[in-house]
């Protein structure tokens, strides 16, 4: 009798334990699937973020475990700023249907961004039809001036190729103006508490934008300042332009039009 009771009790205990174990395993499975779903969401969010900021910057923010409302400290750096703008955009925007205009602009932004990425620059922001890019702002880059000018030449080639496509579709051709300057500034995540973006802030960014405007006066597409010229590979063919006053600077600014790279000795790789 006693043995029967004991056996029954043991069986009951085993059944209870088995039940608890089963429930715990289901709970664990449930939690694991929730964790995996959260990880997948995070991954999607990261991919979405990479469309809004340079991928390197997104990676860095994640690695630094940056909390909302805070950011990594801004650092003083010497970087090269490149400003590219569409020439005659306003007139074109009035002639084209909004959907067609948006498609043409997307193609332009993509090609310009690819040229910047390819030459180790970071797209800072899109300003209307203009793009601000930095070289040497996120990571040390002693070759930043050469990179920026190579990117500008790649942009010129990309626009030529894009114009071929636009011609075939009967759409107006695009032309660009590019200004490049180098100087010290503050690099980091900046903005209000609710909205921040990675930026490089310094006089060189303003000068690059204003030098870009001079491309209309000098009838050229790529202009660099004297500071950039001094650091540039002598293989680039430059043509000096007459000094012009620009807003914010007391003295007229000497600029140089970039024709091409002369040597042609480099094998094309990548």
């Amino acid at each position: 009798m006693t043995w029967t009771v004991v056996t029954a009790a043991v069986l009951v205990i085993i059944a209870i334990l088995g039940g608890a174990l089963y429930r715990q395993r289901r709970l664990n499975q449930n939690l694991r699937s929730q964790l995996e779903a959260a990880a997948a969401n995070l991954e999607k969010l990261q991919q979405a973020c990479s469309r809004l900021a340079p991928a390197g910057v997104v990676q860095r923010l994640i690695a630094d475990d940056v909390q909302p409302g805070t950011g990594p400290k801004a650092e003083r750096k010497v970087a090269t700023a490149l400003f590219v703008d569409l020439v005659g955009f306003t007139a074109m925007s009035e002639r084209l249907e909004p959907a067609v205009l948006a498609r043409v602009l997307d193609g332009y932004y993509q090609r310009m961004s690819d040229a910047i990425d390819e030459h180790r620059g970071q797209v800072g922001s899109f300003v209307g039809d203009g793009i601000v890019a930095y070289f040497g702002a996120t990571q040390p880059n002693p070759w930043q001036c050469d990179d920026a000018v190579r990117a500008a030449l790649a942009m010129r080639a990309a626009i030529d190729e894009y114009n071929g496509e636009l011609d075939r579709e009967g759409l107006p051709r695009l032309s660009i103006g590019i200004g490049i300057d180098r100087g010290p500034g503050l690099a980091g995540l900046m903005g209000s508490r609710d909205r921040k973006e990675y930026a490089f802030i310094g006089r060189s960014v303003n000068i690059a934008a204003r030098v870009q405007a001079l491309t209309r006066i000098h009838q050229v597409d790529i202009l660099v300042t004297e500071t950039v010229r001094d650091d540039l590979d002598p293989g680039f063919v430059l043509v000096p332009m007459p000094a012009e006053p620009i807003k914010g600077l007391t003295k007229p600014v000497m600029t140089y039009a970039v024709r091409r790279r002369s040597t042609g000795r480099e094998p094309a790789v990548g």
Partner: peptide, 25 residues
């Protein structure tokens, strides 16, 4: 070192100094 290129370099050297630079970041 300043421009990753020089007239005295041969084709292989010219390619590989650029490649070396690409491996830093």
């Amino acid at each position: 070192l300043t421009h990753l290129d020089a007239p005295d370099l041969d084709v292989l050297e010219r390619l590989l100094v650029r490649f070396a630079r690409d491996t830093i970041w």
